[in-house]
Amino acid sequence: MKAKNQRLVLLILAIVAVLGAVLLAMSALRQQAAYFYAPSDVAAAGAPLDRAVRIGGMVRPHSIKRDPDGVTIYFLVGDETANVIRVRYRGIVPDLFRENSGVVAEGRFQPGGLFVASEILAKHDENYRPPVLDAGKGEHKSSSLK
């Protein structure tokens, strides 16, 4: 075997090995590297009460309720399953926060299951289009949480 081919074969083997190792590590990190918990994760594993976490999903339609004080809101976060998380937040929400739209909330679970958010982020999907083509009354539709 010529030295050139030997180098090529060795290098390809090394690349395959490193790539395999990294892909294994990444798939093992699936849960840990997730940026937020979905309602079904919380339902399956129980709500962690001891630390601040992020939860995310879609804001359920017609679920946003405003307190008489004007700055406290309650809403439900759901995912593809029937599980929902009830969230309370006091403050100003991003412009893109709306019903049927993606949301990520950072905060703590209360013993009763209520999630008290300290920060609300809006998550939009991968569709971009001009407003005239929009038939959904400005509602933001997304098929997945990713």
Binding site: L19, V22, L23, M26, S27, L29, R30, A33, A34, Y35, F36, A38, G56, V104, L121, K123, H124, D125, E126, N127, Y128, S144, L145, K146
Partner: peptide, 18 residues
């Protein structure tokens, strides 16, 4: 590949690929 698939493998704030 990690950058490319990050939005598919993991839940992210960043949206998926358009």
């Amino acid at each position: 590949p990690i950058i490319h698939y990050s939005v598919l493998w993991w839940r992210t704030l960043h949206q998926g690929q358009s």
